[in-house]
């Protein structure tokens, strides 16, 4: 187990900064002192102007996985995987990719009685440890991950590592809570990605008639006479909630992705990677 180090390390992941990597990013006007090896002569031939090719700086990637293990993530229905299972699968897949590249992964997990603890992994040899650690995660942790994430953003050593934080949660809390979290992440220049997990019945509840709803976290009952009007109101409220979170995330430059548990996990991960919503 390693603590996240404070020194910047080279890696295989392209960063936002321009550097000596292999991935072409853009052209810029040549200025005196630039290396002539990076002058794009074909452009000079067409335009008669010297342009220098810029490449993304290849830097060491550090993935911070924050998995919401509250009780709401463990609700399972109709044989579909729970949101926590999907979050763990996605976290394992992303962690495997990062570790396979030799980069580091930090898992932010909490115990039932203790504050969140950061567990770091680096290198391919630690892949099985990461998977074993993820297998041990169970639902019922409450909001401790969110508290740990706030503390994580405030830590100075994490600012220097510029980690990529991935939050996997159902986000069933008031948008104001996440707005403050996103603001904190933006203030500390932490690249954050939010994978919003939702069950299909949360997006479009198939309920009808006299229903007693029981909160999975608090056990609170709520008796409702669910009809089309109620369902329509719920859908509108869910969409409003989703728009609020998405708007707060985009406002702070945070990527937000909605995934439903009835979608295949492989396709979901590949979709995240393919369209660059998660990693560039």
């Amino acid at each position: 187990m390693h603590r996240l180090g404070g020194a910047q390390e080279g890696g295989s992941a392209p960063g936002d900064r321009r550097g000596m990597g292999q991935e072409f990013v853009d052209h810029r006007r040549y200025v005196a002192g630039d290396d002539l090896r990076y002058v794009d002569w074909s452009v000079y031939g067409r335009l008669g102007e010297m342009q220098v090719k810029e490449f993304a700086a290849e830097e060491s990637m550090h993935l911070v996985l924050v998995i919401d293990r509250s009780a709401s993530m463990g609700v399972r229905r109709d044989g579909q995987p729970s949101k926590l299972e999907l979050a763990l699968d996605i976290g394992a897949a992303l962690g495997a990719l990062v570790l396979w590249r030799g980069d580091g992964v930090t898992l932010l997990v909490s115990d039932r009685d203790r504050a969140p603890e950061r567990i770091s992994f680096r290198g391919r040899s630690r892949l099985m440890e990461l998977i074993d650690q993820l297998d041990g995660v169970e639902a019922g942790g409450g909001d401790r991950e969110m508290l740990g994430l706030r503390e994580f953003f405030r830590r100075r050593e994490m600012r220097s590592t510029r980690p990529v934080t991935v939050l996997l949660s159902d986000l069933l809390r008031p948008p104001a809570d996440f707005d403050s979290l996103f603001t904190l992440a933006a203030r500390h220049s932490v690249r954050t990605h939010v994978i919003h997990l939702a069950a299909p019945e949360e997006v479009n509840p198939p309920l009808s008639g006299r229903i007693e709803l029981v909160d999975s976290e608090t056990g609170e009952p709520l008796v409702l006479e669910v009809d089309e009007t109620v369902r329509k109101t719920y859908r509108q409220r869910f969409q409003k909630h989703l728009d609020a979170i998405r708007g707060a995330a985009l406002k702070r430059g945070i990527a937000h992705v909605l995934l439903q548990t009835d979608e295949p996990m492989e396709e979901a991960v590949l979709s995240l990677l393919r369209d660059g919503r998660l990693f560039r």
Binding site: L172, A199, I211, E212, S216, L222
Partner: peptide, 22 residues
């Protein structure tokens, strides 16, 4: 009455009036 467990009642009720409604 059908009893159904949901992730949260957050979206099913007004938070400010939850106690009164309950």
């Amino acid at each position: 009455t059908l009893r159904v467990q949901v992730s949260s009642l957050f979206l099913w009720k007004e938070e400010s009036h939850s106690r009164r409604i309950r």
